[in-house]
Design a binder for these strands. Structure first.
Length: 459
DNA sequence: AGTCCGTTCGA
DNA sequence: CGAACGGAC
């Protein structure tokens, strides 16, 4: 009997002649796909992001009846050789533009055509391919608003008919797939985690629900993590389950402010991808190096604060709820992404890359361009970022955007019995901070002043 | 896509 | 005396 395999490799392995391929054949394993992970940290286990990617790709591989080679983030010159090694005649490559080379799609396509291999690309699709929107003199747009104008003027094709590509299958049907990576990373999900459904149908269902029930209120509700005000399309856009042109076409006939705001958010995603296309190094290095001249914390106490931040144990309920949402769902509301990022950078004085790395590790929608440039926006090191001195107050943010405290109580069981907005200030409760929940690890007013001091004294 | 502080304005 | 506003960081 033939069983199926989804093989996982580290990027430093030579795949073409890897013994796992031969072993799979020896054991009558049909190779569904080969996934080469190098756009996520490799040492973390139980990453929900990789789990969602794995399910998405497994569903795709299943739909392609095993004729599929999935090589994500791999140097493209080896793809034809890989395709022959696993007897695949269709190759799936991610179409996003990471730091591994611009214009690679064209090179890949040519190489695969030469090898007689059919090529399909899904993953991180854009209405306008990164690099295409240019000023009249051919230079890139470095500022969002002019980019937005140029992007709109550029225009884009109509979306492909839904279902015209790959028919996605229920991920439940591919449960028999086993991972051969010794660490089984990406296949293991922490118990109790709830991950989004994968595939095109789930994306379309989610979109229609958002469009019909929340889009008109998007302007007002998008900043409210206690309400279902956002689309949750990021994971489907990231992994190519839905195309932004599908969403844009649906928005085109709508005049509401919500529709306009949402279109603008899609444009931000394309702007950041365009930025990475032109400046691949900006994924991990500050666009404006002024931030690098500041003093940042390191050493044991700093590592302990970093760990408290990651675990959602800073003592600031709004921050902790966001960080725990990330751990529980592999997703965090955008308002919390900004607030928790500000806290790491400006209250804990740690470099933005530390936080970006943690987010990429856990976010099911984790994307180099959007995530890392989002971090640079908060840090004040982006091309068009918020100024460094724009510092979020973790308490004010909570009381303003989660006024009833419902969001905090949803993610912090220690505070579940504290009613109303008082939940944002557990240290002021009669009887003190509830058992099991930490005191604030830093004083925000002190650390805000400290951050501004370091900003003033930068070299 | 922020916060803080000092000042002014109106109840 | 609190809301509103402007400038500074």
């Amino acid at each position: 009997m033939t069983s199926t395999s989804l093989l996982w490799f580290r990027r430093d392995l030579r795949l073409g002649d890897h013994p796992a391929l031969a072993a799979a054949a020896d054991h009558n394993h049909r190779v569904l796909g080969v996934f080469v992970a190098d756009d996520v940290p490799l040492d973390a286990s139980g990453s929900p992001r990789r789990a969602v990617l794995a399910r998405t790709l497994a569903a795709l591989a299943q739909a392609m009846d095993g004729r599929l080679l999935i090589a994500h983030g791999r140097p493209r010159s080896v793809l034809p050789r890989l395709a022959r090694a696993v007897d695949a005649d269709v190759v799936h490559v991610s179409a996003d533009y990471g730091p591994y080379g611009r214009r690679r799609d064209e090179q890949v396509q040519r190489a695969l055509q030469d090898a007689g291999v059919e090529w399909v690309a899904t993953g991180s699709p854009y209405a306008v391919a990164p690099g295409r929107v240019r000023k009249s003199n051919g230079e890139r747009y470095a500022v969002f608003t002019p980019f937005y104008r140029g992007w709109t003027d550029h225009g884009w094709r109509k979306p492909a008919r839904s279902g015209s590509g790959v028919d996605w299958v229920d991920p439940g049907e591919v449960d028999g797939i086993t991972a051969h990576d010794p660490q089984e990373y990406a296949r293991t999900v922490p118990a109790g985690m709830s991950l989004p459904e994968v595939g095109e149908q789930a994306a379309l269902d989610g979109w229609r629900t958002f469009r019909d029930e929340a889009l008109d209120d998007y302007d007002g509700d998008r900043d409210r993590p206690d309400r279902p005000g956002t689309s949750h399309m990021s994971v489907y856009l990231k992994w190519g389950s839905i195309h932004p042109r599908t969403l844009l076409a649906d928005l085109a006939g709508r005049r509401s402010t919500g529709a306009a705001s949402y279109r603008r958010e899609l444009a931000w995603r394309e702007f950041y991808a365009d930025s990475v296309f032109h400046l691949p190094e900006s994924v991990w290095t500050s666009v404006d190096p002024v931030i690098d001249r500041m003093a940042w914390d390191s050493g044991q106490p700093a590592e302990e604060r970093f760990e408290a931040w990651r675990a959602g144990r800073t003592g600031y309920p709004f921050i902790d709820a966001g960080m725990r949402q990330l751990l529980a769902e592999g997703w965090m509301h955008n308002r919390l992404r900004m607030a928790t990022a500000s806290f790491l950078i400006k209250d804990l004085h740690l470099p933005w890359q530390r936080g970006a790395e943690h987010f990429l590790e856990h976010l099911v929608d984790g994307d180099y361009a959007s995530n890392n440039h989002g971090w640079q926006w908060v840090a004040g090191s982006g091309a068009q970022a918020a100024p460094f001195f724009r510092i979020f107050n973790p308490l004010t943010q909570g009381e303003k955007f989660d006024p009833s405290g419902d969001f905090v109580r949803r993610y912090i069981p220690e505070l579940r019995d504290v009613p109303g907005r008082k939940v944002h200030r557990p240290w002021e409760l009669d009887g003190g901070v509830p058992a099991g929940y930490p005191e604030p690890i830093v004083d925000h007013a002190d650390e805000r002043a400290e951050a501004l001091r370091r900003w003033q004294q930068r070299g």
